[in-house]
Structure formats: structure tokens, C-alpha cells
Write a protein that binds this DNA or RNA. Structure first.
Lengths: 217, 217
DNA sequence: GCATTATCGATAAAAAAGTATCAATAGTGC
DNA sequence: GCACTATTGATACTTTTTTATCGATAATGC
């Protein structure tokens, strides 16, 4: 199992993603953009941005001018892997699974949601955002058939491991896990865990930090 | 604006959250637990876990025994801020907003979702998981009235800044932002941004890394 | 074309996070 | 009660990330 959080810079990807958002928000008339401007817009440290851009778009920056908007955006997208195409399935057609199936922007990131899976007879056969919900018993077979490379898990903690095993049996090489469990996964499969509880903790703890600072004044 | 990602250890919170999950998954009969066991179960480096536990539950570890399960769990929860109570509202009753409103486990993390907001006349007045969807025009007033401290933004990128401004006008001290934009926020307000696009990039890039390693062999 | 300026990219220093090693200690078995 | 063992917590080292400084360079204005 490749534990992503430990091996890759989470922060760098987060920043790169924000660079993309920002660059796409700019007017077409903007020809070039500097690290300074980006840093100010996104509240990042200027030198960090410059280093990131040097890594992402090496050698394309010009003194006094900055980076070509279009070129930099292309480089950022490439860095983020948006040039590659991946076919995915979502297992668990609950609220979250439905939300992800309905999210139109995944296509821009090279992610194609091919189908959903669920165990509920009411849901099987229905469609969400034009995509069929299939029986969970078919996961492995359908993944092979459709050439799916990413499995997205939005079932509850109890069933996540079983679903994961089926997805791997179906030949996926990456797992995007929204269930609050640590999955047991073979070495060659990549996993990215989402953890809303951890996010919430970061938020509430920094709120307290802020209020402490206020009362100290 | 307090940029959380930059100031706090994302990884430490992610690990702490996994400690909690793991400790809660243990049988009641388990009296004590060692850093070694936890590290093996969660695929973390042993010394990292020991350092984390020293920070989270300082001095409570006993050689040859480990940590008392109940005590450690309490300390982890405290570290994660689950002992504090926060009232929140969710703005945007789309698929994601609905998913978050329906998520029962927030209560365990000290988060109470008081209400939702939307602009759609069809949604206003309806209920999700027993919680009323109110008119977005009332955000600021209702937040003050209900004593809301956290605003959760699940609207689209275009409307996120306006919603954010209203939430701050309503007196929230933290913003949990699921919209793909960088919000402009005053210094004393905490923000935690969720970025699915960045997560996806991490996953796909580490998948490629894995397949490169395979072909090298 | 020469001084001025914004910006880059390189280099260096500092801080944070992760990894490795080991002595001290609380139990266990004999 | 003495040797043995699992585990802690401290210390040291390494790597990564962030922050700071500065010379080099491309454009601008005079």
C-alpha cells in the first residue's frame, strides 16, 4: 500500500490546486502573471509560490514579466495530472456517493465516473446524473469489463473493507476512500483517504487559537 | 485570516483522527494498547506514533504495557477538540450540503448542525434529517439568533464569497469551505478549505508512481 | 544606451517533520 | 529477587519544507 499522505507533499498539491483555480478565474486578456501577484491573491508566501512555479513550470518565468498565463495554466494542470484520463466507479449511492456522481467538474480533472454501485434494491437500476447504479455484487466483474482504474468508496465504515477488496479484485489501481476506516491494501495499490473528522478538528482548534489571541490583547 | 493548512500539521491531525478510529474499534476488554500495536494496525512508523502519543497523552504511557485504552482515547478526543461544542449551519442544500446535513456522526465530534440555507424556493421550508432549510437571505440574522460559530459552505464557487460574507456578518468564527475558491476572510476568522480536486491529483499521481515502479522491475 | 525597476531563480538559513538509536523502566518468568 | 523482555521516552540525526536574502535579467523610461 502506498500511503500517499506520508510520501507526497499534501501542501504542494493543495497550493497547486489553488494556482489552477486562480489562473482559470483570470480574464482571457491577462497575458502574463507574476508569482508576487498570485501570492497576494491566494495569501501564500511569495517565495513559496516562486519555488512551486519553478518546479511546476521550470524555466518559463521571465524577469519583470512573470509567467505566460496560458502556458502556466497548462503546466499546472499537467502537474496535477489533469491530462491523464481515469475511469472510476463510486460504491455507495448514499448522499455522499450521489453528490460525487453529480459533480460535473470531475470531467475537467480527467476523471470519468462510469457507474455507481449499491446494495439497495430500490437504488439498483436507477440513474444518477445519467449514470447507472448497479448491484454491488457485480463490482469486480464490471470494473474489469469497463476498464476502471479508480474505485471511490462512499459506503459506511463497516462495509468499506469488503468493497475495497472487490474493487481490487476488479483490477483498480487506486482507491479514493471516504469511509472512516484504515483499509488494508496491497503494496501496489494507491490509496487516498478523505477524513472530514480530521478537517473539522483542524478548524475548531484553529478557532480556539484565534480566540485565545484575541483575549490576550 | 488564519490559513490553517499552513500553520498546523495536517498530517498530525490525520494521524490523530486514525488513532481515534482505531481505539474506538477496539473491544472493551482491551485494557491497554502500545504504540507498536497501533503503528502496525495503521501502517504508520512506530516512532512517529510514539511521538504523537507523547504529545497527545503526555506521561500516560507505561513501559512494557503501553497506554490505557480508555484514557488514551479520551486524550485523543480532547486533542481533536471533540470535547468542545460548536453549532453550525450549512449553506447550500445541494447534494453535498444534504450529505453533510444527513451525516449523523458529526454529533460525536462536538458539531451540531442547527439548520441549512438555500436560495431555491422549492427547498426553503423543507427539512433534511430533521433540520429546517431556511432562506439564504436570513443567514446573518439566524446565525446571530442561534449562536452559530461555524459556517459550512457547500454552494458553488460563484456564490461562495457572498455566502461567506453573510456568515461572518452573522458572527461565525470559523468557515468550513467546500467551494473551490479562495475566500477573502478577515484575520480573526479561521478557515478550513476542502479541495477534492487536489486530493484526486494526489491519488492519480501516486498511481502513476506505482506503475512506474512496477515497469522498472 | 544607461539607469531604474519588477521579477525570476539560486543559494543559504531556519524550522518542522520524519527516522534511527538507545538507556530507563515496569512487568514476567524462573 | 534476578535475568529477561516489551515498551516508553529521550536524544540525535536526516530529510523536507518553509522562510530569507541577493545577484541576474528582461522590460521601461529617460
Amino acid at each position: 500500500m502506498t500511503i500517499i499522505a506520508a510520501s507526497t507533499s499534501v501542501q504542494l498539491y493543495a497550493r497547486a490546486s489553488k494556482y489552477r483555480e486562480y489562473l482559470e478565474s483570470l480574464d482571457d486578456e491577462v497575458a502574463s502573471i507574476s508569482a508576487t501577484t498570485i501570492a497576494n491573491a491566494l495569501n501564500f508566501y511569495e517565495v513559496s509560490v516562486r519555488k512551486d512555479l519553478a518546479q511546476i513550470s521550470d524555466g518559463n518565468g521571465k524577469p519583470k514579466v512573470g509567467y505566460n498565463r496560458v502556458g502556466l495554466l497548462a503546466d499546472v494542470k499537467k502537474f496535477l495530472g489533469y491530462d491523464k484520463h481515469n475511469r472510476a466507479v463510486i460504491v455507495g449511492a448514499g448522499h455522499l456517493g450521489t453528490a460525487l456522481m453529480s459533480y460535473k467538474k470531475f470531467a475537467n480533472y480527467g476523471l470519468e465516473i462510469a457507474a455507481g454501485f449499491d446494495v439497495s434494491p430500490q437504488k439498483i437500476g436507477s440513474e444518477v446524473n445519467g449514470k447507472k447504479i448497479l448491484a454491488a455484487s457485480e463490482i469486480a466483474d464490471m470494473c474489469r469489463q469497463l476498464g476502471v482504474s479508480i474505485g471511490i468508496i462512499t459506503v459506511n465504515a463497516e462495509n468499506a473493507q469488503d468493497v475495497c477488496d472487490e474493487l481490487i479484485r476488479g483490477g483498480v489501481s487506486g482507491i479514493w476512500n471516504f469511509a472512516p476506516v484504515t483499509l488494508k491494501i496491497p503494496e501496489h495499490i494507491a490509496v487516498k483517504n478523505e477524513d472530514l473528522a480530521a478537517s473539522l478538528s483542524m478548524l475548531t482548534n484553529s478557532m480556539d487559537l484565534n480566540s485565545e489571541q484575541l483575549t490576550e490583547e
